[in-house]
Computed example of a mutant assay.
Amino acid sequence: MHEMSIAMSVVDQVEHAARDGGAHAVREVRLQVGALAGVVPDALAFCFELACTGTLLEGAALVTTPVPARAHCTGCSTDWAVGMPPDLCCPGCGSATGTELRSGRELRIESVTWDDGPVCVPAGEPIPEER
């Protein structure tokens, strides 16, 4: 179950940032989770609770924000929701070669709230899936 390695990575990153920020407890972690990230939200929530045990995050809430999968055709400039399973053929021109997946693979920390208020964690880097 890769949700456990994701949860442990999130806890490690947030705990490090919280300690550096002088926090004594983390209250909430918000994650963006793309529809194509291969993450089961309920499994992630379960693993997150386990991974938080004995850390500054113990008792913290995990809030996931779903990010829909969308694609763009470079040939005809059509944008569309790719659905599940993903359909990467352009509904406008039928092309499958000039399509770009624009969203849906996200897995990033959106924000963290600890004992002295909300602190945004830079979301420039995706969460590593392996420890």
Rank of each mutant, 00 (worst) to 15 (best):
P128G: 11
A35T: 04
C93M: 09
G22W: 03
C120R: 01
A17D: 12
M8L: 15
E130P: 01
G34I: 08
G34R: 12
D42H: 04
L57H: 02
V14Q: 03
G117T: 10
D20F: 02
E125R: 12
A7D: 07
C47E: 09
S95F: 07
C76L: 05
V82D: 01
E100Y: 05
E106L: 11
V29I: 14
V29P: 00
A43H: 12
H16W: 00
P85D: 07
G94Q: 05
C89E: 13
T74G: 10
V67I: 15
R108E: 13
E3H: 05
A123S: 15
L44T: 03
R102C: 05
A45L: 04
V112M: 15
L50M: 06
P66M: 06
E49H: 07
A37S: 14
A45R: 14
V67F: 15
V10A: 06
T99A: 06
E106V: 03
D12E: 05
E106N: 10
L57S: 13
Q32S: 08
W114S: 03
P118R: 10
A7F: 14
S95W: 06
G38Y: 00
A60I: 06
E58F: 01
A81S: 10
R19Y: 04
A81V: 15
E130Y: 11
S103K: 02
A60Y: 04
V14F: 13
G94V: 13
A7N: 09
V29Y: 01
C52G: 13
T78Q: 10
C93F: 03
E125T: 15
A43G: 11
H16C: 04
